[in-house]
């Protein structure tokens, strides 16, 4: 039984062509660049493909390489709103899809009590009263009392959106199975209201830190993108873009040290976001060159385990002093045209 009244935003109309799509991957790359996101050819191509094929993207890779950032930049680049669903263990439909707003329903019932008794007083028999009440039932099970959670918001949004499902690997297998239905049809059913179809097909990005194996069914439905740590050149570009106050030479040294740290056997390798934090710390400390004291005092920004810090000090000791002599040779300063960034 579908007692859904077509009053508001939930509708069954479907249009995908309204939004301007990217013409090619260069344009994707360019627009992402305007969002301050430096995308490799691979990332740009996959995003472009996802839009063309209407498929979700599953982005995997170590923590802190900018997977979430990618979704934000994607939303910015395609002029869409970003709706984010953060996954965690125990996440269920009421948190992800929708929930009835009990308290509000209650409050309305209380406030409308007089009106209700007036309405029911006209009824002769008990069953007539029940019928009358039933005919007004829609008032209490309407969209008014439906609390949309991220997934429903993404489906019913007036404008096309980018839906970010963050850290899907943290959710339970059951939730993953539930998500499959949404990702394949872009529609959900709310028992009291009927089936709700997406107005605009959202662009979907799922991220995973690979803490557990995702189901094959989910992978099959997605395009797969492995985001790895950036190369030295790319990372330098990122630092230059995000922390322009840091002078070039120091930025080069910093990136070099980070790249060296990643090649060490550490409990947790420094991520790109940590490189940026470090760069900001160096700016805040007014450091103009990398010496042992600066390095030692700021290393904890990069490394979050005491054993890692110890090990890194041992490994970097003989290098930090003369790090300046080995500059990145192939550095190509980030010009006004973001396309130039790629070799």
């Amino acid at each position: 039984m579908t007692r859904f009244n077509p009053s508001g935003t939930i509708s069954a109309s479907y249009d995908t062509g309204s939004q301007d799509m990217f013409k090619d991957k260069r344009e994707v790359q360019h627009c992402l660049g305007e969002q301050q996101y430096i995308a490799t050819d691979e990332i740009a191509t996959v995003l472009f493909l996802a839009e063309q094929l209407n498929k979700p993207i599953l982005a995997e890779g170590p923590a802190g390489v900018g997977k979430t950032e990618l979704a934000k930049a994607w939303a910015g680049a395609s002029n869409r709103e970003l709706i984010r669903l953060q996954c965690y263990e125990g996440l269920d439909e009421t948190k992800a899809l929708y929930e009835w707003e009990y308290a509000k329903q209650m409050l309305y019932t209380q406030l409308l009590r007089d009106k209700l008794s007036q309405l029911l007083s006209e009824a002769e028999t008990l069953s007539a009263a029940a019928d009358r009440l039933a005919s007004e039932e829609d008032v209490f099970f309407s969209e008014r009392f439906l609390l949309p959670r991220p997934l429903l918001r993404a489906l019913t949004s007036d404008k096309p959106v980018v839906l970010l499902i963050d850290e899907i690997d943290r959710s339970d297998t059951e939730f993953e199975a539930f998500l499959l239905e949404i990702l394949s049809d872009f529609q959900v059913s709310v028992p009291e209201l009927g089936t709700i179809k997406a107005r605009h097909q959202p662009l979907v990005l799922l991220t995973s830190n690979n803490t557990r194996e995702l189901s094959e069914a989910l992978k099959r439905r997605c395009l797969y993108l492995f985001v790895d740590y950036p190369s030295m050149e790319q990372e330098l570009n990122i630092v230059r873009l995000k922390v322009p106050e840091l002078n070039l030479k120091l930025a080069q040294q910093a990136v070099q040290i980070v790249q060296r740290l990643r090649s060490m056997d550490l409990k947790k390798s420094p991520s790109v976001s940590e490189t940026l934090d470090w760069a900001k710390a160096l700016v805040a400390l007014n450091a103009d060159h990398m010496d042992e004291t600066t390095l030692n005092s700021t290393l904890t920004v990069l490394l979050k385990h005491e054993t890692d810090v110890q090990r890194a000090r041992g490994g970097l000791d003989n290098r930090a002093g003369r790090g300046g002599s080995q500059v990145v040779e192939r550095y190509d300063a980030y010009g006004p045209d973001p396309r130039r960034r790629k070799r």
Binding site: E42, L49, E60, Y224, L225
Partner: peptide, 15 residues
Amino acid sequence: EVFRVSLKTTLVKEA
């Protein structure tokens, strides 16, 4: 390169 990435992203689902 686009051809390579298209194949890779659709076929290879594990790092």
